[in-house]
Design a protein around this nucleic acid. Structure first.
Length: 271
DNA sequence: CAGTGGGCCTGAGTGC
DNA sequence: TGCACTCAGGCCCACT
């Protein structure tokens, strides 16, 4: 589910709830992708100082150390002072004096990982290879251009890898390539400067708009206060195989790249 | 070194 | 109704 917009929507809905809260107890359920890396009891008494985001990771700053939270494919976070008893897919509960933060994740590709500090080896391992933040003012076109130039991988695959720019997942990758008029299979290095610029701008505008619309809710994503997103009504190509392109009426096509489906318009995306 | 594919999990949907 | 199979929003890691 969660690509950058969904994680950012989660972060924004969570900040007012958790900022300054004091942790009382932590309960972990079934194993997630990685172990927590600390005794849950050691988190009790700590204060939540802030909640940042890096790519699709949420970074929760504590009075001593931090937590890296990833939603994987099926994760979502709720925060409330009156949650029901934990269900079979609720694998992390953090009770604070302001309410309970709960990670719900049926597929358990998500994770909550403790790090002693930003310099902790686990932070380097998980965040070290990440590309530029597309919604930050550090997302520079020349660097983006250089990143594409140095790779012969299909552009869709490169976007998904997060090595050049982070946060563009399977839905938004198809969408931004459509807006830029680029075929998903085109080797990144072979895209002309003008189309690279259009792609750069499409990434910024699509992700921003998705955040404004509360993210994409295909199945069960919701923000921390339970609100569903609406961007799924805006997708031009994703999930529309066989349906007419909104721009030219040609049927949208689907193909597989690295076990992930890609949607594109064969007419609008020629280069 | 760059690039590819397997695997981690569960649930929903499809076709027989 | 049941079973086998495919697919789903991500990403690390072993391999070529």
């Amino acid at each position: 589910m969660p690509e950058l917009p969904e994680v950012e929507v989660t972060r924004r809905s969570l900040v007012p709830a958790v900022a300054g809260a004091r942790i009382e107890t932590v309960r972990v359920g079934k194993p997630l992708r990685w172990p927590l890396g600390c005794d849950p009891v050691s988190l009790a008494g700590q204060q939540i100082l802030g909640l940042r985001r890096r790519g699709k990771y949420l970074l929760m700053d504590l009075s001593d150390g931090m937590l890296l939270i990833h939603l994987g494919m099926s994760g979502s976070i709720r925060f409330s002072d009156q949650l029901p008893d934990a269900g079979v897919h609720d694998h992390f509960d953090m009770v604070t004096d302001k309410g309970t933060l709960r990670l719900h994740d049926p597929r358990r590709f998500g994770a909550v990982v403790h790090a002693a500090s930003e310099a902790d080896a686990v932070v380097v391992k998980l965040l070290g290879g990440l590309g530029m933040e597309p919604l930050a003012d550090t997302f520079f076109l020349p660097l983006f251009q250089a990143g594409l130039k140095s790779s012969r991988v299909p552009i869709k695959t490169l976007l998904l890898s997060g090595r050049v720019v982070v946060g563009v997942g399977n839905i938004y990758a198809s969408e931004v390539l459509f807006l830029a008029g680029i075929r998903p299979t085109t080797p990144a290095a072979r895209i002309g400067a003008e189309r690279v610029r259009r792609l750069y701008e499409a990434i910024i505008s699509v992700l921003n708009r998705a955040v404004e619309m509360g993210g994409t809710t295909l199945r069960d994503f919701s923000s921390a206060d339970g609100a569903a997103g609406h961007f799924q009504t805006q997708t031009r190509v994703y999930g529309r195989e066989g349906e007419p392109c909104h721009a030219c009426n040609a049927p949208i096509r689907m193909l597989r790249q690295g076990q992930r489906s890609t949607f594109f318009c064969p007419v609008c995306q020629r280069a």
